[in-house]
Design a protein around this nucleic acid. Sequence first.
DNA 1: CCGCCTATGGTTAGAAT
DNA 2: GATTCTAACCATAGGCG
Lengths: 231, 231
Amino acid sequence: MARKRLDLTYIASDSKRNATLKKRRNGLMKKINELTTLCGIEACAIISTPDDLQPEVWPSHLGVQRVLYKFCRMPEMEKGKKMFNQENFLSQSIMKAREQLRKLRNENRKKEMSLLLFQCLSCENSANNLNMTNLSDLSWMIDLTLKEIEQNIIKNQPQQDALVSTNGGEPMNGENAPLVSHVQGLMQINMDAMQKQNLAMDSINGGGNLMHPTREFGLSNGMVWNENYLH
Amino acid sequence: MARKRLDLTYIASDSKRNATLKKRRNGLMKKINELTTLCGIEACAIISTPDDLQPEVWPSHLGVQRVLYKFCRMPEMEKGKKMFNQENFLSQSIMKAREQLRKLRNENRKKEMSLLLFQCLSCENSANNLNMTNLSDLSWMIDLTLKEIEQNIIKNQPQQDALVSTNGGEPMNGENAPLVSHVQGLMQINMDAMQKQNLAMDSINGGGNLMHPTREFGLSNGMVWNENYLH
DNA sequence: CCGCCTATGGTTAGAAT
DNA sequence: GATTCTAACCATAGGCG
């Protein structure tokens, strides 16, 4: 977990794997101790090492018997009801990651459309070569932007006219230039968002490839998507 | 674990405790998943929440049965042999902390003696009011310092005389002034070391007060110790 | 192999919404 | 209460002795 992003795969080297096992086992025990102390609950962990002699590990010896006892009479009455097992944990993680991915794509799409919009406005691009999806999103973006600008103007000039004057000779001061700052904000593509998107996709595609690994999520990072993420 | 050093005690507030439980339980599951993946071992954890419905948690469902099976036939053959349970974990932690504490006290004692030495040398203090322990350590410190200085001089002036000249008019250059830098180093009391010492003492005295809580370790942070830590 | 160190990534308490 | 954000703390991989 240091000097590099951890890649969640089996460590081939024996010595490294054992070192990691030892460190992480200690870390885990510490965490369990903290959890039981902080939250006043019972918990146990069993870690089965292949070259044992310290074959199992737990936070407590008698404690585990209680926990195990409670656990063993569980399946009959709750029978996989809301059991928070690995499967549930993983699908929950995946759902979260998907949701985050959707949001980030949406965000990126907005940025792209803003960029496109201002390219068009500054005559660097004509709208001729845009397909229907892009045109539709562009139109949506324009509406959204206009609405935001209006709201900003109303909020920042409550004492003056609520209508937009077409700059009738009066010089703008810093407070009364919401348009400028808005445009400045929109003009930046959010690289951060793109990185986050990649992370989210990693955490879906990587981590053991437990679900449909590539077909569904392996989209390119290019700027054109096949669907309309905005609506 | 944020914005404050964690104090390892039961969280009184219900909402906070539950929030912490949820977050940490997730963190724990993640860690166990990582451990099993990275090290290719089997492990399970069971966390028993009071207001259950998600009464237990594990990394896997069938996996636990295997681990439990292996565990259940263990006591007879290994019978608490090298079982790495909570008790062993804690006493190991305590031993580590003690060892660290000893080292840090030692280090601090050195610094103190250095300071004292140079106070004496600069006539800010006379050796009259020192007890036997301090005098003994001071003497030891002087020997040590002289030895280090000699070694530094020999190392840094291999081409010149190996003996210490008493500054016969030749101005020292930066390279040939080991004495100066040595003295500068010694003159600083290492506040960092004192803080670390406090941390180590916390980790022994706190954390549930499982061992002799105060009598043995609860020394003051003052500059005089009852025993001779140097030898 | 074992322990120490440190840069860095990961975790999370508290706050904001 | 749930979700998100973020500063700060913690865990740990890799390097060194």
